[in-house]
Amino acid sequence: MTSNYTLRDEIREYWSARAPTFDDQVGHEIFSEAERQAWRALFLRHLGPGEGRRALDLASGTGVISHLLDGLGFDVTGLDWSEAMLARARAKAAARGTQIRFVMGDVERTLESRASYDVIVTRHLVWTLVDPEAAFKEWHSLLKPGGKLLIIDGDFVSDTILKRMIRMLERLKGRASPIAVASDAMRQTHERILRQVHFSKGARAREVVDLLRQAGFAENIVDRDLKRIHREQAKHMPLLKGLERATQHRYAIVSTKR
């Protein structure tokens, strides 16, 4: 490993390695029309209909959120820094005949034009940020006056008895399995990265809102009513995983640029 290899490089490589199986996981891809409608309801509640307004999907991955926004009538750009993720997103968009623009970029330094978006959406991004203060200032600058930022995130770090039980069962089930070994290696990389990001102790809504205020955002509303989404996701998960999802500190935050 060279001396100029950074945490951001490791994060990029980690998610690029996850790209081939990213859409296999509940919480990444959408596996039912009921869940799709639950996401649509959340977006409509906080953002309203697209009506041609410009939307930026940050850390767009394979384009799941980008396609939801496109279906609501937004003019969508998806930004990600993993070429492997972007390749899958572009292939999916081509197959579905959408006009979503996918670009490579760092969410903390996007190089997108200032005051050019009506809406910015992030899902499960904030908890991975190296420098959320810089990121939030960047996102604030990209929005038009009155523009909305919608963050869907949570504390996926804090340990619980339920999480410990799940880990124990996974270890027992995966013993001596080559797949489990690969998963363990990926988990170790994930844990090493997590120890170094800003929210290494968990991205709690209150701390996120405090940083958003410092970046200039106003009317920071925390919405914890994500039960409809989690209920539909749990139908496609093992029982204990579904219970874990239902008990985690998950939330949506909608913020406005004055």
Rank of each mutant, 00 (worst) to 15 (best):
A115G: 12
T98N: 09
S113M: 12
V107C: 11
R96D: 07
L69A: 07
L68H: 11
A84N: 05
A115R: 14
V107F: 05
T98C: 07
L72D: 04
M85D: 03
V76C: 11
T98E: 09
R90T: 09
R114W: 06
W81M: 13
M85L: 02
T98M: 05
R109G: 10
R96V: 01
T110E: 09
L68E: 11
V103Y: 05
D106P: 08
G73V: 00
M85C: 01
V107P: 03
A115D: 15
L79I: 10
D80C: 02
E108T: 13
W81S: 12
A115M: 13
V107W: 01
R109A: 15
D80V: 02
Y117V: 12
A84Q: 09
F74A: 09
M104P: 11
L69Y: 03
F102C: 07
G105F: 04
R90L: 08
I100A: 07
F74Y: 14
D75Q: 15
V76D: 11
S113R: 14
S113G: 12
T98W: 03
D80K: 00
M104V: 09
D80T: 03
E108H: 09
R88G: 11
L69S: 06
F74M: 09
G105C: 04
D70F: 06
T98V: 07
A95S: 11
G73S: 03
V103W: 03
G71T: 00
L86E: 06
L72P: 01
S113Q: 15
E112T: 03
L111H: 14
G78R: 04
Q99H: 15
T110W: 11
S66M: 10
G97T: 00
S82P: 03
E112C: 12
D106A: 08
A87H: 08
E108G: 13
A89L: 10
A84R: 04
F102Y: 15
Y117D: 13
K92Q: 08
S113E: 15
R114S: 14
S113P: 14
F102H: 06
S116Q: 08
G78W: 03
L86V: 04
T110L: 07
T98Y: 06
Q99N: 14
R96L: 11
S82R: 01
G97W: 01
R101C: 13
I100Y: 04
Y117S: 13
E83H: 13
V103S: 11
G78I: 05
A115W: 08
A87E: 15
L72H: 02
Y117F: 15
L86C: 04
D70S: 12
V103R: 14
E112S: 08
S82F: 02
Q99C: 12
